[in-house]
Write a protein that binds this DNA or RNA. Structure first.
Lengths: 175, 175
DNA sequence: GTCCTACTGTGTACAGTGTAAACAAGGAGA
DNA sequence: TCTCCTTGTTTACACTGTACACAGTAGGAC
């Protein structure tokens, strides 16, 4: 059922995921999903969790690049491409729907992969640097999805390189 | 009518903006909005445009800080606070709704304010640097809205300072 | 003054949505 | 065999966006 919802999400966008369409896709009556999920938000939450697992896998794969800085840039690019490849899923994962909460454990795994990589570059307190790195890829990914920024790999690569450079050097002066 | 929709958006969130509720708020029949907007998406588009105008005003105000680097950080902080202060509006402005398109001219104005500031810092080709700066504040803003990152000013300030530092120095080595 | 036209608003109706309630089939354990 | 739990179905309801036909109201032409 989660798989069917994922397919529906990819093919028809967020608006296409209705309980009736989902029921039809799984060959079942319209009310059957309520036996497995308390409501639609819970179902979408489960779909989003599956999406985070997939994202974590993608990031892990990208993180194999060397040296460390290239691995960070590769992670950013993989994140960006995931978003462009699965726009509706990405939007669902990141707070499109109120009430559709994802357990921190789920997105925490993807976040941990990034944190480890940044820590290997920065040393010391990597918290702000990690958030900066996450922020820039996430921001460019969503802006590109909305057409406000060109959806080109170069954009992400350049921005990530800038941030990675900033991280690798000494901590910047405050302000 | 756009004002009423904005109020509804701020108070009840995105889901609360229905044509019937909007009509009731303006003391008019449910179908009256269709005399002014072809459909709901167009109405929301107009609301989003008003939001971009407000955002541009906020950024202009923040950009007065000196020196230039502080102005950039202030812009980022203002952007972030705007998002936290008007979550539903912010989500609407940035691609929540398909078909609800905002003219590039509208968000371009806000973007131009940022571009000018980055150019004053970077000199030369400020394009990638501008996108990086926009990306990081936008990313942190949306992540904070979704509760995936703490909604604290310090986070944005630190990240913006890092990016601003990266911009102010020489262009980073590619990759 | 009278008519025509455009604009704005109303009322009704319909399809699609999430979901609550009552009921049915089928297997597990006593 | 009887009972209960899980899963699924059917029906029904409130709410949504919106298409359609109609009404009032202002301004200009004669």
């Amino acid at each position: 059922m989660i798989d069917a919802a994922t397919v529906l999400l990819d093919e028809q966008g967020e608006g296409g995921v209705t309980l009736r369409a989902l029921a039809k896709a799984t060959g079942v009556s319209a009310m059957a999903p309520y036996r497995h999920f308390p409501d639609k938000a819970a179902l979408l939450g489960a779909v989003a969790e599956a999406g985070f697992a997939k994202l974590a896998a993608v990031l892990t794969e990208a993180d194999r690049a060397t040296p460390a800085k290239a691995a960070l840039v590769a992670q950013g690019l993989a994140y960006f491409r995931f978003a462009q490849g699965h726009p509706a899923m990405f939007r669902l994962m990141f707070g499109g729907n109120p009430g559709c909460t994802v357990a921190p454990k789920e997105y925490g795994e993807a976040f941990a992969i990034l944190t480890r990589r940044v820590a290997s570059l920065a040393g010391g307190d990597a918290g702000p640097a990690t958030l900066a790195a996450w922020g820039v890829v996430h921001g460019l990914s969503t802006l590109a999805l909305d057409g406000k920024v060109p959806a080109e790999d170069d954009v992400v690569t350049a921005a990530m390189a800038l941030v990675a450079d900033g991280i690798a050097r000494a901590q910047p002066s405050s302000l």
